[in-house]
Every structure is written in structure tokens, then in C-alpha cells.
Design a protein around this nucleic acid. Structure first.
Length: 275
DNA sequence: AAGCACACCTGCTAGC
DNA sequence: TGCTAGCAGGTGTGCT
């Protein structure tokens, strides 16, 4: 589910709600969710008694700074949700990690497909994230850097490069399609075929689409798998021009949106106004 | 050696 | 109504 705007919304709310909150209990009930750590006690012990001092984000990773210097790393993958609730609130199915705070509230990690994960890292820059590129929202590469990143990918599609977390971190299948639509570039085109002016449009579209989506608190699709820490849906799905809109009219030119599969993922574009 | 298919899971929906 | 095939926002691995 979640891409950069959804993870940023969760980060923002966790900052408002859990900075200064002291963890008094830790429950990790699904081995897959803490698979990098293995043993539940090895995950739980360093967290007990710690207090969150900040929440950061790198691409789709959430980073919770703890007062002893360790970092709780959270990735929601396809179906993960973070909820902040009272301890007596009823548990959703697939609640795999619960951190209980001193004040009676809980941080709950819910994840039906169990692709998501949590682990602890010693320093502020976890080694597990070393291969991730600069964040698309906080430190977008310059036009020159983007031009060379596109030019060196001989065969990959524009969409594939946009979604490559090693090039830019945070863009996924929804926003890759939406960015290409705003930039008037066909997502299926070879990345190396883009002219400099087109790379410039893509770069501007990355910023404008992500900014608008963050302001709308992310996208929630029909299955409502993405919700914020209160369980509320985002609003950016109402502004989608192409994603999951196959055969519907393009809001810019009216032509029917097309859908195809590239590298195993669905791609959507307008054949009328995207070249 | 970039780029692809595939694996990892559960749940929902569209279509028969 | 009830079954099932197909599909889903991500990413690490391993093959070509």
C-alpha cells in the first residue's frame, strides 16, 4: 500500500503523538514481522523503558529514534498499518507487534500479508538502508543527476527507474504513474530516450505530485488497506488521473486511459497527452 | 550486469 | 449463492 506520502503522513502523526512517550511493554507475536531479529525477546529487551525522541523517514522506511541512541526501523510493505490506540481498544486481526506506553496508549503494527517488518538499528543511519537512494521529497537529486540516472538505464522503462529505490527513494506504483501523467511522459518509454526537457518535467512532477499527495494525507484505495494512525483514510485518490483508471477518460484530454503490465507491475497512462 | 520472473502472504472482487 | 482465478500500494533473491 504505502508509498512516500502515506509513510510521511504516518511519520507526521507519530511525531505529534508519541515523542516523549515511554515504552513499558513490548509484544511481538508473529515471527515474520521481526524476521531480521529472530528472537522476540531480542527485539523486545532493548525497547523496554525507552522513549521516542523523533520520527524520521527515508523513502518508505520509518525511523523511530530512541533516547538511548537506537532506532526502531519500520517498513509497512504492502499491507502494514501503524495504529495509535488506547490499550483497551479492540484488537484488529493480524496485530503482530504492540508497544505499550506508560500513559496507557499503544503503538500497534497490523499486517495481514506479513510482508512488513520491524527491527532495531544501533545508529541513526541503519546499514540495512545503505542501498537506498536520496529521498524523493526531502532531497530530490538535481536535474543533472536525474538526467544521468535516466541516461545510464539502457533498457528500463521510465516508470521502472522512477520506482527504483536505489535511484530515488519513496516512489511506488501509484505515484510513478501519476508523476508520468503530470510530466506528460509515457511511463513505458525507455528511460534513456528522454530529452533533457522531459527529465526536467519529470523532476518537477515528482515534487508537485508528492507535495499534493502529502497535503491530502496520502491515497486510500477501494480496499482501504492504507489508513493513518487513527484509522482514517487519505484523500489523494480523488485526484488520481491515471492509476487504477483504465478505460476511464483522461482528466486532461478526455482520451481513455490505458493499462499494461511492465516488469510485472501494472502501468497506466493516457495515449492522448503523454508522449 | 541490468533487468526480469518469482517468492513471500492474505484478502477482496469480478466473473462464471 | 458459491466457487475460484486473478490481482494488490513492496522488495530481496537468483537466474539470464
Amino acid at each position: 500500500v504505502p508509498e512516500l506520502p502515506e509513510v510521511e503522513t504516518v511519520r507526521h502523526d507519530l511525531s505529534a503523538l508519541t515523542i516523549g512517550a515511554r515504552i513499558v511493554s513490548v509484544q511481538a507475536s508473529h515471527p515474520r514481522t521481526i524476521r531480521r531479529v529472530g528472537d522476540p525477546e531480542r527485539f523486545a529487551a532493548p525497547l523496554r523503558g525507552e522513549t521516542f525522541t523523533a520520527w524520521r523517514r527515508h523513502g518508505k522506511y520509518l525511523l523511530g529514534d530512541l533516547d538511548a541512541g537506537q532506532v526502531l526501523v519500520v517498513h509497512l510493505r504492502m499491507s502494514g498499518q501503524v495504529l495509535i490506540t488506547d490499550a483497551n481498544a479492540s484488537h484488529l486481526a493480524h496485530t503482530h507487534v504492540v508497544l505499550g506506553f506508560e500513559d496507557g496508549r499503544e503503538f500497534r503494527f497490523v499486517d495481514p500479508r506479513t510482508f512488513g517488518e520491524l527491527f532495531l538499528s544501533d545508529g541513526p543511519s541503519p546499514a540495512e538502508l545503505a542501498h537506498i537512494g536520496p529521498d524523493a521529497y526531502l532531497s530530490l537529486p538535481s536535474a543533472t543527476e536525474l538526467r544521468s540516472a535516466f541516461a545510464t538505464r539502457r533498457n528500463a522503462a521510465v516508470k521502472t527507474v522512477l520506482c527504483d529505490q536505489g535511484v530515488i527513494a519513496g516512489i511506488g506504483n501509484i505515484y510513478g504513474d501519476e508523476i508520468c501523467h503530470v510530466a506528460r511522459v509515457r511511463p513505458t518509454r525507455a528511460a534513456a530516450s528522454l530529452r533533457p526537457v522531459e527529465v526536467g518535467r519529470v523532476r518537477e512532477a515528482i515534487t508537485s505530485v508528492l507535495t499534493a499527495a502529502v497535503h491530502a494525507r496520502g491515497s486510500s484505495l477501494a480496499d482501504a488497506q492504507y489508513v493513518d494512525v487513527h484509522g482514517n483514510a487519505g484523500g489523494f485518490q480523488a485526484h488520481h488521473a491515471v492509476y487504477a483508471r483504465a478505460n476511464l477518460p483522461c482528466p486532461r484530454c478526455g482520451r481513455a486511459i490505458r493499462r499494461a503490465v511492465v516488469a510485472g507491475r501494472s502501468v497506466h497512462w493516457c495515449p492522448g497527452c503523454q508522449r
